[in-house]
């Protein structure tokens, strides 16, 4: 059983992303969408937490949201960039989804 965690809040404004990381289990997937994509940027003060999560979870970011915010090409290594079709695949390939609103 694996879960897709969808997070849409900037970790610099809300605690949702931190909470998501604290409650995701090994083997789960984490997808950053909307304002949460800023968490994918390499070199930020939050990047270490995302890198730590990658040890036993897969981490994805919605490319369209990165591009919209002028952050294309700034995602850290190891984060997989997906489009909306890839977002759908993530929901289908994991057993359940949880949105960290």
């Amino acid at each position: 059983m694996s879960m897709l965690h969808i997070v849409n809040k900037s970790p610099f404004e809300r605690v949702a992303f931190d909470s998501c990381l604290a409650h995701a289990s090994a083997g789960d997937a984490i997808l950053m969408i909307e304002d949460a994509v800023v968490g994918a940027v390499d070199g930020s003060s939050f990047a270490g937490k995302v890198k730590a999560a990658m040890a036993d979870k897969s981490v994805y970011v919605l490319g369209a949201d990165l591009a919209a915010r002028g952050l294309e090409g700034k995602a850290m290594e190891g984060v997989t960039i997906v489009d909306y079709a890839g977002f759908v695949d993530l929901t289908a390939n994991n057993d359940s989804t949880q949105s960290w609103l």
């Binding site: 849409n8 909307e34 304002d35 759908v88």
Partner: peptide, 17 residues
Amino acid sequence: HQSADTALQFTRAALEK
């Protein structure tokens, strides 16, 4: 909020698949 847009894009993509 962007969520309505994201939901629309997601729904379209799911139907296309």
